[in-house]
Design a protein around this nucleic acid. Structure first.
Lengths: 151, 151
DNA sequence: ATATTTGCAAACTATTTGCAGTTGT
DNA sequence: ACAACTGCAAATAGTTTGCAAATAT
């Protein structure tokens, strides 16, 4: 049965306090504020465990590494800002899209990602932008691929 | 300026003759029928070059490694079969989804992926299924994460 | 002739796993 | 006590890159 370790709590808290889905690396950095010695392997192990326990859910966007957020509302979508790369939840949904599939195919679910500019980045080169680059959720990946996938 | 090598032609042909987006590994296997000694690095280099030249476009699905297809129809979406994992193009589109974004956000594009069963897999345990597993476009990846990418 | 391309191996990034030591219950 | 958990290092998978040999023009 599961134990309550400092590292697990720090990981859970880091995600609970974020206002958007976090990458494993972002979780590590946030959780290290509580547990300095925390290792990335422990983050991955706990993310996987917390997903299986139903506390977290993975957020997969096209060409992006998986992010993690608390399980909340069941069906929802995401928005990625083309400027700061951060990902936000979108609670609206276009509804049933089964009609879009080819003849003979059955559709039971869908993923939707919107792209554009988030509220912070829509504003002109305004000095009032308070978000720091390190908080952008950005990671590396060229335009063509990404990051990737492993299996 | 670009040269016309046997390997580049084999790679281009493999994708042109496929009826769905292919993974780099699938491109390699198909192109090796023409050029047995072909290496995976050459496939990656050519895929990147062909994308930059505008001949190919990457197809990124959530939690999947990038696939590649010919540049054709501009805006379209994809369907992934939950059984055989293959990906198909969907030419229909729900239209403008800007209204779904939060207040203050601007939307200029979207990605949509439908999930369900493809025509071949909808049919019951019918012996007439002629597709072989190796043609399934499947690759490895657990449910939670996936591949990834690099930077 | 010569600049581009290729194959191979090494390097890289993201993620997973083995293992011995640490810790929660 | 002792099974679960952790950190570290090694292992994987996908992708990229350096380099000498091969090749298109």
């Amino acid at each position: 049965m599961e134990r309550n370790t400092r590292q697990r709590s720090a990981i859970r808290d880091a995600i609970a306090q974020a206002d958007r889905p976090l990458l494993p690396q972002e979780v590590l950095e946030a959780a290290q504020h509580d547990v300095p010695g925390l290792g990335i392997a422990t983050v991955y192990r706990n993310l996987k465990a917390l997903v299986q326990e139903g506390e977290l859910q993975p957020v997969n966007l096209p060409g992006e590494n998986p992010r993690f957020e608390l399980v909340g509302h069941q069906h929802h979508h995401h928005f990625q800002c083309r400027q700061c790369q951060r990902v936000f939840d979108v609670h609206a949904c276009p509804g049933d899209l089964g009609r879009l599939a080819p003849q003979g195919f059955t559709v039971d679910d869908h993923d939707l990602t919107l792209y554009g500019r988030c509220k912070d980045c829509v504003a002109p080169a305004d000095k009032s932008v308070k978000r720091k680059a390190s908080d952008s959720g950005t990671h590396n990946h060229a335009s063509t691929h990404t990051h990737r996938h492993r299996s």
